[in-house]
Computed example of a mutant assay.
Amino acid sequence: MLTFIGLGLYDEEDVSLKGLKAIQEADVIYAEFYTSRLMGSSIEKMEGLYGKPVKVLAREDVEQHPKENVLKDALDKKVVFLTGGDAMVATTHIDLRLRAKEMGISTSIIHGSSIASAVCGLTGLQNYRFGKSATIAFPYKNIVSEAPYDTIKMNKQNGLHTIIFLDIDREKGYMTVNQGVELLLKVEEKRMENVLTDSLCVGIARAGSSDPCVKADRIDRLKSYDFGGPLHIMVIPAELHFLEEEALNEFA
């Protein structure tokens, strides 16, 4: 049996009661923190709450060798697989569930709070007005991906907001809103377009914590704003509904 459990947004206390019960009843606990992580917690704190050891897997363990760990144990044991945020949001988790089904392993999902809904709550931007999301990756060999810029452009043309996820890298660390803005503006300068000129941008840091930071301003002004510690995420809004505008004025 393999149960996927979303741990929520910030620390070990964000897990649901149903999720905590399943963890405590499990024979083996696996976790991955390469798609997201709980910045207000640690493995030691989690193990203290669960009363059991947690085996943390690297990306290659989950995506390339799951039959040697998670799936092998799930054939005859109760296994839980922990992720930050909500389970099944990342493609890698869906792939793991499909592999489990192919091996005849029963699976279930216990959901957790998601950054997708937290962004709406913290900013007041309406959830049904979001289009396709995008991720800004750290440049590879000094090449800046233009894909996020194209997504923003498409969404703006359709009157939709864009959530921009920011890269997590073992060597480069956690991308900040400031770095994300800088990379987007580099693409705009290269392409000599005006998708982001004078555009509103919203930066959010530490969603789910007791001190989240939410700041809305013209995109070029956010380059120098101090959002504090990770994790960060951005939103490029389309034209605002009057209630969205009022909420951003009051809360951001």
Rank of each mutant, 00 (worst) to 15 (best):
K101G: 14
P148T: 07
D217S: 13
A87K: 01
Y149L: 01
I143C: 04
A216M: 14
R221S: 03
E189S: 08
Y149T: 05
K153A: 12
S108K: 10
A90Q: 09
Y174T: 06
L82E: 02
G112T: 10
I109P: 11
G124P: 04
A147P: 05
L160V: 12
L122W: 01
G121R: 01
G84W: 15
M154W: 03
A118H: 06
N178P: 03
D169F: 03
I94W: 01
F81E: 02
G180D: 05
D211E: 15
L98I: 13
F81H: 05
N142V: 15
T123L: 02
K77S: 12
A100C: 11
R97T: 10
L222K: 04
A116H: 12
K215D: 03
A216Q: 14
R191D: 05
Q179G: 04
H161M: 05
I168L: 11
V187P: 03
R99D: 13
V119E: 12
M103K: 15
L184N: 04
Y174V: 14
D220W: 08
K156G: 14
V144W: 07
N158C: 10
G173I: 09
C213R: 07
D86G: 10
H161G: 08
K172H: 08
L122V: 05
K78E: 13
D95H: 12
G112C: 11
K141I: 07
A90R: 09
S108I: 07
V214Y: 11
K132E: 01
A134D: 05
A216T: 15
E193F: 01
N194K: 15
G104T: 11
C213E: 14
D217T: 07
E102C: 00
V79K: 01
G131L: 07
S199M: 06
K132R: 09
A116G: 08
Y128L: 09
H93A: 02
L122F: 13
E146H: 01
S209W: 10
I168Y: 00
V144I: 15
L82Y: 01
A118M: 06
I94F: 09
G131S: 02
T107S: 07
I168H: 00
